[in-house]
């Protein structure tokens, strides 16, 4: 059987993603049955730029499965890979580990690693290009919270122009029927044309708004993202617009009882801490779901089957 990698979210079909999430559900129900599933297996986390949260999520997943982890947290501090090509690093790591997780500032680096490695490769972010485990975590969170990935309205709020996470999530969600998109952003940070063109071509409805208040009452999922001051054209616009994109208790009053709030984290000030205790605030649960999803992913890529309990 050919080895499998996860380089872009599209590497998995909708059916395969469904299988992955069913497995993650089973793990979530009773983690102990999976506690030794990866005994004797090693994961190498090769981080050419630091991303502590992403690295720890993968390492936690592997440790939960009874496997071991090794690697480096930041390409800048290790001499092991200095001057070496990604292709060579991938070949070397293949001799040490059973599965490789790579984060690299260069776009396309994970694909190169997957091509030259003889072991499964997980892309944990390649520059501004892809970050598929974040996307799968978002999908799994939505599916777990509301029970399905079709027939719902999602609001994406904040920096929709430069936000890789948002673009990737939209690309993943268009594969499910009847998802309605509402984009909420300042005019200068609206979703790129290639996304709205794609939605038009596919006949998928979407709306664009400048104020969160104008859309929040209709949302089933609210996906918040960080909005950086430097992204605005001028200071006046920033001062004038910034409050439209800060979620607080007041705005949550307008949202549905069943509207869950997601955020890829870390947040800065776009979600007021007073929202954290709202049962609809799901961004910390999202982190936990990310671990279950990654456990399922590691098992799937390593082709390890734990008999399901009857």
């Amino acid at each position: 059987m050919a080895k499998r990698d996860l380089i872009t979210p599209q590497d998995f079909t909708v059916e395969e993603i469904d299988h992955l999430f069913t497995l993650a559900d089973d793990i979530r129900k009773d983690r102990s049955r999976y506690a030794h599933a990866c005994a004797g297996k090693k994961m190498a986390t090769c981080f050419f730029e630091p991303s502590t949260r992403t690295r720890l999520s993968h390492e936690t997943a592997m440790l939960n499965l009874g496997g071991s982890v090794m690697g480096f947290p930041d390409g800048g501090v290790t001499s092991a890979t200095k001057g070496e090509t990604v292709a060579d690093t991938a070949r070397v790591i293949s001799c040490f580990a059973d599965i490789m997780v790579i984060r690299h500032p260069r776009e396309g680096a994970a694909m190169v690693a997957a091509h030259y490695a003889s072991i499964p490769v997980i892309n944990a972010g390649d520059g501004g290009h892809q970050h598929p485990t974040q996307t799968l975590t978002d999908l799994y969170t939505i599916r777990t919270l509301q029970g399905h990935l079709d027939n719902f309205t999602i609001g994406l709020c904040g920096d929709l122009k430069f936000g890789r996470t948002v673009h990737s999530l939209i690309n993943a969600l268009v594969r499910y029927p009847n998802v309605h998109f509402i984009f909420i952003s300042p005019p200068e940070l609206r979703v790129p044309d290639y996304i709205t063109e794609m939605l038009n071509d596919m006949g998928i409805p979407y709306e664009e708004h400048i104020r969160l208040e104008d859309a929040i009452s209709r949302l089933d999922i609210l996906y918040m993202t960080r909005i950086q001051k430097e992204r605005f054209f001028n200071e006046d616009d920033y001062v004038r617009l910034k409050n439209f994109y800060i979620l607080d208790a007041e705005k949550m009053k307008m949202a549905k009882e069943s509207c869950y709030v997601l955020h890829p984290l870390p947040r800065v000030n776009e979600i007021a801490t007073e929202v954290d205790d709202d049962p609809r605030a799901a961004y910390f649960r999202q982190v936990q779901f990310g671990v279950y999803m990654r456990m399922a992913l590691v098992l799937t890529l390593l082709n390890i089957h734990v008999p399901t309990e009857q």
């Binding site: 690299h104 260069r106 776009e107 190169v112």
Partner: peptide, 13 residues
């Protein structure tokens, strides 16, 4: 032409 592309640093690709 993307300066952040891996093909522009790992030149043997």
């Amino acid at each position: 032409q993307n300066p952040r592309c891996i093909s522009n640093t790992d030149t043997n690709l």
